[in-house]
């Protein structure tokens, strides 16, 4: 009896302000989708950051015949010079580990890495990537000293700090994340105002019913529940749309990002589902709470 009555009241309420309900659903959907996208981007950045922070290396590329650096004189360093460089690197206090990679190994690795783009991998040749030392740092942030000592040293072509490159990408992603979050926050404010307005209209439309309910001694819960659930259901429908949008977000935004930027870690559907569930709960609670607070103003007990 109770459940049927409450559901009937909710249905009447939602149907009577159909346009407001639609506006509310759309706003909630956009807010939650943007919010979720922000969270997903943050998860992506954090995850990649973690992954990379113990994998980023300073790569020291040695001269070879194709080097553009004039100090190389288009010649490879001798084995003695290579050993010297390696010894110097190993002696530095910041360095955790040094691995030498030959042209042959570098070639193999590049082929492997770009195997999905055959047009590119076919054109790679041995010698395109020179011999190099991959230096693992004890603390990835202390790359400066290594870079400074190796830059311009005899036999060294280029010093590339991978972290600096990654940080650029992370900055872009971080910016996207904040943009999404800020727009989401504005949408949340709009959603709260819309809930307040919808519930106010709903309370006005049903003032006869609520007046009689009050008079015959219906409990406050009984009077308020249909309104609060009305808000919550609008929030839930918005959340379902947001879930669909987040699915698109995962496939088209993060999926493309992963393809193009060679992220080592990808967010699985499990992460996305977590975010979706969280966003939906947030939407429902937000709308229910906003309804409840509005009722306190417009529904006299």
């Amino acid at each position: 009896m109770r459940a049927q009555f409450v559901l009937q009241e909710i249905w009447i309420g939602l149907r009577r302000n159909l346009t407001m309900t639609i506006a509310l659903v759309v706003t909630v959907a956009i807010a939650m989708a943007l919010f979720g996208t922000g969270v997903l981007l943050k998860m992506q950045v954090d995850k990649s950051n973690n992954y990379w922070s113990d994998k980023v290396e300073v790569s020291i590329y040695l001269c070879n015949k194709m080097s553009a650096n004039p100090s190389c004189h288009k010649a490879e360093p001798t084995q003695g010079e290579k050993d010297q460089i390696e010894a110097q690197l190993k002696a530095m206090p910041q360095v955790a580990d040094v691995t030498a990679e030959t042209q042959q190994q570098a070639f193999q690795r590049a082929r492997e890495r770009f195997k999905d783009t055959p047009g590119f991998s076919d054109t790679i040749q041995v010698g395109d990537i020179p011999d190099s030392f991959r230096v693992k740092l004890k603390n990835p942030k202390e790359y400066q000293a290594v870079v400074a000592q190796m830059q311009g040293r005899q036999g060294v072509d280029q010093v590339i700090n991978e972290r600096a490159i990654l940080e650029k990408f992370f900055k872009i992603l971080g910016g996207l994340q904040w943009a999404a979050m800020i727009i989401a926050a504005i949408q949340v404010v709009a959603a709260v105002l819309l809930v307040a307005n919808t519930i106010r209209l709903s309370a006005f439309n049903r003032r006869r019913e609520t007046g009689i309910m009050r008079l015959v001694g219906a409990s406050n819960l009984y009077i308020q529940l249909p309104f609060v659930l009305e808000g919550a259901i609008a929030g839930l429908i918005g959340g379902i749309f947001a879930a669909v949008l987040l699915g698109f977000s995962k496939v088209f935004l993060l999926g493309r990002l992963q393809q193009n930027l060679q992220f080592a870690t990808s967010l699985g559907w499990l992460d996305v589902i977590q975010v979706i569930v969280f966003a939906m709960c947030f939407g429902v609670v937000l709308c229910a709470l906003a309804s409840f607070l509005t009722l306190r103003r417009y529904l006299k007990i």
């Binding site: 009896m1 009555f5 009689i212 015959v216 009984y222």
Partner: peptide, 8 residues
Amino acid sequence: FALEVIGK
């Protein structure tokens, strides 16, 4: 209605 809303 008067009885429904008090949960009879």
